[in-house]
Design a protein around this nucleic acid. Sequence first.
DNA 1: AGCTGATATCAGTCAAGATTGATGTGATGG
DNA 2: CCATCACATCAATCTTGACTGATATCAGCT
Lengths: 117, 117
Amino acid sequence: MSTDVLETDTDGPADMAGPANAWTVAGLLADPLRRRLVELLSDGPACTCHLVTDTGAKQPTVSHHLRALREAGLVTAEPRGRFTYYRLVPEQLRAAAEHLLSLAERARANDDRSREC
Amino acid sequence: MSTDVLETDTDGPADMAGPANAWTVAGLLADPLRRRLVELLSDGPACTCHLVTDTGAKQPTVSHHLRALREAGLVTAEPRGRFTYYRLVPEQLRAAAEHLLSLAERARANDDRSREC
DNA sequence: AGCTGATATCAGTCAAGATTGATGTGATGG
DNA sequence: CCATCACATCAATCTTGACTGATATCAGCT
């Protein structure tokens, strides 16, 4: 049998909310163009044509990166007629940020615990 | 006289506190081995040999990534005899995290402001 | 001084991923 | 119904960066 009949509409990120996600987000934000896309989308939802214009990158390239962001659940895609509107998912960014914060906190707490050789 | 007698000992990260830093941190955390190193160092300072043992990676590889982390100011190096102790700089992680948070916040605020085509 | 262990650097190799042109698909307008 | 626009996918190329073996450096030990 199969329970894989999920996410059949646009695309499903499989809802990873754990700590592993923070690393995924970091990996996505490592690329300059993807950073730019995220920044642009933080000003509000926009369709592909906007993002292509604003970034100056070719359309297939933008589509490619939007797909990566979509599959990670960092953005959602909403088809409207001929256009496809992309929208940031702040919760994902927030989760990643909080994970980094907890790591920083832990590092500060263990700052004086040097391991012996 | 000169006040540039800073960072002359081990290495100086140039103290980037802006949003550029967040992207740099993201880029660094994109690599699996570097994530591991950061995680290990969050448990407290350790020398290269520890990190080599714990990660299972070759020594030059670890040194290479430690250098990247060092140059970005994410870690500091403190030579002690034959060993070199590395220490996480929580402030950098924290700064990056806060930038992501502000981005998430902005995205949430502009969530209903879709751009027209 | 000579030796050994701990690290850093270098040059070469190789693989992952980014970019691009071509092409397919669905929606809109005449 | 045909032409066009917005977008996604594909196959190929190309660039970036990670890994490795060899080697240099420096500290401690005998």
